[in-house]
């Protein structure tokens, strides 16, 4: 692309483009490396939030206790939905790498849909907790629970925005085989958000919670 512009402008192109998508020292493009580095940082963000949850999980004051309020079967289903979206993300990438625009589009939209289902489940869960008396300010446990899962939900939502942006640019004909790396980078983010959910799900729901 850069070459095209340079030629149009009638300016000489120099060969020493030492950065760009190819020819980097690590062999990983700048964009992809940036995402990896960013995800490394995100680990500590969720690490901090998970710690804040862990030390507060048994501090439910007079409010509902975690062991009494969690609906583990429901959350397991929505977790399954989210994990399946990683599969569809992989399918979207491999379709585009094969040059299969149509399937790429289908799987991108499926991934976004599964992510939205997960968010819908979270909204449902939050509202039902609210009805059962677990508000954000009820106890240290409730604050930590909503903050941790809320931050994760925001991350999923940002991922959905990125997926939809990819789908839109696909419909405009601008997402093609040669920029499949963009899909790969968004995929990295998406998989990361899923992996983090495995940790959060384990820590919050699977580890036996204190009851009142």
């Amino acid at each position: 692309m850069s070459e095209a512009i340079v030629t149009e402008a009638g300016e000489p192109a120099r060969g020493d483009h030492d950065h760009g998508d190819h020819g980097t020292l690590t062999g990983i493009s700048n964009n992809k490396l940036l995402m990896w580095v960013f995800l490394g940082s995100e680990c500590l963000l969720f690490g901090g939030l998970i710690s804040a949850y862990l030390i507060n999980r048994s501090r439910f004051h007079t409010g509902p206790a975690p062991g009494d309020i969690f609906d583990i079967p429901f959350t397991s289903v929505s977790s399954f939905v989210l994990l399946m979206s990683s599969l569809t993300m992989v399918l979207a990438l491999s379709a585009l790498q094969r040059g299969d625009i149509r399937n790429n589009r289908i799987w991108l939209l499926t991934t976004a849909l599964l992510g939205s289902l997960f968010i819908g489940g979270q909204v449902y869960e939050f509202t039902s907790f609210l009805r059962e008396g677990l508000g954000y300010t009820t106890s240290p446990f409730s604050s930590a629970f909503f903050t941790l899962t809320g931050f994760h939900g925001i991350h999923v939502s940002v991922g959905i925005v990125m997926l939809m942006s990819l789908a839109i640019s696909s419909y405009r004909g601008t997402l093609t085989q040669k920029n499949s790396e963009t899909v790969e980078i968004v995929g990295l983010y998406w998989h990361f958000v899923d992996v983090v959910w495995i940790f959060i799900f384990t820590v919050i729901y699977l580890v036996p919670s204190p009851t009142s």
Binding site: H17, D21, I185
Partner: peptide, 19 residues
């Protein structure tokens, strides 16, 4: 002028600042 070094930044900048 020229395309040096800025290609593809849009996507990443997007993801990042979006974040």
């Amino acid at each position: 002028g020229g395309g040096h070094g800025d290609e593809g930044h849009g996507d990443e900048g997007h993801g990042e600042t979006e974040e």
